[in-house]
Design a protein around this nucleic acid. Sequence first.
DNA 1: CCGTATCCGAGCCGATACTG
DNA 2: CAGTATCGGCTCGGATACGG
Lengths: 126, 126
Amino acid sequence: MKTHSELGNPVHIAMSLIGGRWKGEILFQLMDHGMLRFAEMQRLIPGISQKMLTRQLRALEHDGLVRRLVYPQVPPKVEYSLTDTGRTLQPVLTALRDWGKDHGAPRVGKILSAENPLSGETPNPE
Amino acid sequence: MKTHSELGNPVHIAMSLIGGRWKGEILFQLMDHGMLRFAEMQRLIPGISQKMLTRQLRALEHDGLVRRLVYPQVPPKVEYSLTDTGRTLQPVLTALRDWGKDHGAPRVGKILSAENPLSGETPNPE
DNA sequence: CCGTATCCGAGCCGATACTG
DNA sequence: CAGTATCGGCTCGGATACGG
């Protein structure tokens, strides 16, 4: 019995599946290219390390969003692609990205300038 | 020179603003009720602690998504509401929630059964 | 080429107790 | 009522090194 974490909330469920630093970017690349090898993704996603790419890929695979195809060769060859379920994320991720472009970017790291200058205002309560 | 954290990715930007365990739920409650006091939100969001509610609310306020209205009374009274920017998140969060309801719920915690039984398949490469 | 293993700091998150 | 303080566990994420 868990004292908490009821996890009945769809928003949080989606978040736990596609949230984090890299998952969104990974999914986008797979949407664009359809099929990618490990090294290709690393080239397409600057800044990501092998560890994180592997970990996130494994998580996505575990959650049934990404398919992993291993070719038993030497040198090894692994191809990643979206599952059917993974593809259903496209509108969601697009919505996320569009919002980020419109509203997130200007205010990330640099605070607002002249839109909401007051914080913790003190009105006259009746 | 930053060796990493390019942060030019809109998906990640949006994630950093609305991601996490509670922010989505908080924003949904504010969308529904328009204006909420601290204790009300705690009642509406089962499982959340004062600490997390405070912290997430502060973060949302810092990012310009939530407005905080303090009445200098005793006992204290604080009202939270969405800013104009915060309201623009509605379609995004709705998309997230809808996806979570459709695809996330059945496979969270319990793995797939007969949709993608193979993981790490071994095709005949050429 | 495609990973694992290890170390490390930072932040998230929950539980509990305390305060103006 | 609306927080803050403190603790501890866990995960995230980066750096580096090693392995099949």
